[in-house]
């Protein structure tokens, strides 16, 4: 079937099997390999994308569900102020080790920080609780999201 959706702010139309997993559509068909697969069963969060601004697990979605949706992947992050702020914080706070969970983490962080004020550490941990990381022990990831939240909040105050 033809699936039409908005992908990282650009219109996208693709002919695809309607039950193709979205993670496969992104990675293999569109070569957007920033979205990772770690488990295939919705337990690790590495495949997290935003659909209409909300986090979704692309390993548990089929292509037909994207029709008419607005999709953001890690490749579209840098184009937004919040996304770029989050990426910078992950890099500078040392939140990145093997990096395989990071795109999913950043998407979860973006959804969390869009909810408003700079969240505290407990709230950040809750917000990231669907994203597994095996390298960092999460401490520096929480540092990064906390800082991104502060930076974004400060940015909003200035405006």
């Amino acid at each position: 079937m033809k699936v039409r959706f908005e992908l990282n702010e650009a219109p996208m139309e693709i002919d695809v099997a309607p039950d193709r997993r979205v993670v496969d559509l992104l990675r293999e068909d569109l070569r957007l390999t920033g979205t990772k697969e770690g488990c295939g069963t919705g337990e690790c969060g590495a495949c997290t994308i935003l659909v209409n601004g909300q986090t979704r697990l692309s390993c548990l979605m089929v292509a037909a569900q994207l029709d008419g949706a607005r999709v953001t992947t890690v490749e579209g992050l840098a184009a937004t102020t919040a996304g770029a702020t989050i990426q910078r914080a992950f890099v500078e706070e040392g939140a990145v080790q093997c990096g395989f969970c990071i795109p999913g983490m950043e998407m979860a962080a973006l959804a969390l920080l869009r909810q408003g004020d700079a969240p505290g550490r407990e709230c950040i941990r809750e917000g990231l609780s669907g994203n597994l990381c095996r390298c960092t022990g999460y401490t520096k990831i929480v540092d990064a999201v906390e800082r991104a939240g502060r930076d974004l909040h400060a940015g909003r105050e200035e405006q």
């Binding site: 919705g42 969060g45 997290t48 909300q54 986090t55 979704r56 697990l57 548990l60 979605m61 979860a108 959804a111 969390l112 809750e126 917000g127 609780s129 669907g130 994203n131």
Partner: peptide, 9 residues
């Protein structure tokens, strides 16, 4: 239930 993304779905 689940994590935040699961709760969105």
């Amino acid at each position: 239930i689940g994590g935040p993304a699961i709760r969105n779905m």
